[in-house]
Amino acid sequence: MGMYGKIQHILSRACDHTIPHKKRLHTILSLVFVFLLSINARALSAGHKYTIYFYNPETNINNFASLKKEFDFYLSRFGGYQFQPFSERELFEKLITNKKDGIFIISSWHYKKLKERIPIEPIMVAITKNKSTCRRVFSTTRVISDISLLGGMNVASASSEDFTKNILVQMFGENKGNIAASIKILSVPKDIDALMSVGFGMADAAVTTDNSLTKLAGINRKLHDKLKQLLISDETLLPIVAIPKPLDENHLKLAKIVKDMETVAEGKNKLNMLGFDGWKTLNESEKEYLEKE
């Protein structure tokens, strides 16, 4: 009798109503136990992989297949590590709630929301052009002096709608929340798309980082000069690396691998895919910023 035949036999016995009820229950429970055991054994035999969990609502990164492939390939040389990017916030949060088998690359904005619910500790912050912070800029092609005239605008953004609206409320002022709420966000894949959308008339305005505007100045000066920077947000920290508590040796090992990526060209290219040049250890003021409400 093959394996499937055996299972069928056991199941037919379990469902046989001539067998007393208690005995049937035992058979079913035994089956469930064997099934769970086999799953566990398979998981153990596959080997446990420490994972970099990535989710960043500040960028509309949608090259997940490439990201995973490139990072997994890079990490494979260090042992059983892998990279897992997420596009859905809910899914990411649900999954990491009880995860202790990896480290997280998340936005500082998201960390502030997560820290209340999940025991995690921030350890590093990303850097771009030697800076660990950026500002968001609201750009249009017209000079508008009254914020109320921005209501109902189509605004292109490469960040998630949640994040963009949050930034808009901060830029407009708390008492102009209704104007921020009336803004229609057009999610585009990248900051440069958002800027070009405004410049070429596909959107009324764009919310992007100041870094992206600087880049645009170097690529297309005419387009850059066409854009008026109406509002600028407060400085925010770039994405961070956080570790679930309690920390263990594997977490620190993986964090070191991530930190060292900037020292080799191949690793740096992978970081560039996420939009950073490297990492730095958080200083006291940065830690304070992250713990502030």
Binding site: N63, K69, P189, M273
Partner: peptide, 11 residues
């Protein structure tokens, strides 16, 4: 320009 790699969807 490797800095532009964050704009690339497929490598």
């Amino acid at each position: 320009n490797t800095e532009a790699l964050d704009s690339v969807n497929q490598i």
